[in-house]
Design a binder for these strands. Sequence first.
DNA 1: AACCATGATTTTAG
DNA 2: CTAAAATCATGGTT
Length: 469
Amino acid sequence: MEDGQRMYSQQGGLTNMSGNVLPQYNMGQDEPSDQRKQEIGDILQQIMTITDQSLDEAQARCRKHTLNCHRMKPALFSVLCEIKEKTVLSIRNSQEEEPPDPQLMRLDNMLIAEGVAGPEKGGGSSAAANATAAASGGQPDSAIEHSDYRAKLAQIRQIYHTELEKYEQSDGSEIKNSDYEAKLAQIRQVYQTEYGKYEQACNEFTTHVVNLLREQSRTRPIAPKEIERMVTIIRKKFAAIEMQLKQSTCEAVMILRSRFLDARRKRRNFSKQATELLNEYFYSHLSNPYPSEEAKEELARKCGITVSQVSNWFGNKRIRYKKNINKAQEEANMYAAKTAAAAAANVGPEGGAAGYNVGGGQAGMYMNLNGGDNYQSSDNSVNALRHVISQSGGYSSDSMHSTPASMYEQHMNQQITPHPRSQNGSPHDQKPDDSTDSWCAGAFMQGLDGEGDNYDGSSDEPGLKRPKI
DNA sequence: AACCATGATTTTAG
DNA sequence: CTAAAATCATGGTT
């Protein structure tokens, strides 16, 4: 549009130039009369001021008509054409075909890659096709006037922000791909709608300008090439808007995606309670800490996390439990002693563990438990067990990690005090025996206790049933 | 800043 | 596919 105005003023420049030309023209005439001079002066005056005049329809029509019918018009017109001829050359050389804007291409590529502009999965929309065609065809007949465009941009932004809020609202507890896709689809739709409008506006405007120029070409010299050029200029202008639209969309997509990834990636510690529940389950099913799908669901529900998170947790827990145990026997033993002591103190009548009342029944249990862990590193289970037991003497020394210690202690206690499996209400978690094979405890525990039935039932403390110490 | 605990992801093995 | 193992990345602590 600015170009359009510029062009008009350019036109003014041309007419001004005719001031120089006029004498030549007059020189060509034998005897320029004063009257003629006057007439020409009037016409020039009219031409020069024509752009300043308001374009009242009727008035304009009238003036146009007058101008067209003026007897001097053909002569002046030809002169103007002549002058134009000379100036146009330089103008025309200045531009010409320009390569497609790399930036725009980049944006296009990205939009296509992000699925905003490209063919839609599962049903290409015409808008998308149009967008792609227009973009690749180098014929971006698309635009919206600046103000209009800004409004659209604002709209897009708003939609985007709304989506963001929804995201944050959803707490990230379970951000799914589908959410992302839905939002992306929304962006895509907005984009395509806007693109369509943009296209339409551009075409309308171009048509308008072309018509205008055609109309004006009757009164002033406008070559078809110039019209073409004008169209190109308009398109260039509109292309800038197009680019902004695309850029904005890209930005929205990028932010959306980064948010999505962030939400997905960000690690959020589970609540104390959730961890407690999980640990509870873990330790109470230490012999086979592989919750069934139902158990997982139950845990997930109780902990306010997803089933996958439960699975992750157990995966991590198992591996880390094992690792940690291997690495630090003493610590484990210590925990055992501690918890055993605590349990002994807290729970007098425990008989729970199948008639294992000897001395510190609980202590034995824990020792065994921890011993089991040790076995991983040590070769012989019996030896290991002995080792553990012998170590139990030095429990007094205190050097456990603060965190694990309390944790273990806690859970150990829980393990003892209430009867474990009834707690969680996930009755059937373990498949009967042999599933324990893979689990580290399983091997030695099985080795220790004759029957591997302990699962599910009073399973928790596997060994110890009647270990031959 | 270094460090560790921990949830999540990726890689590997079956 | 599942699970183990390795690894990444972050939250929280020191």
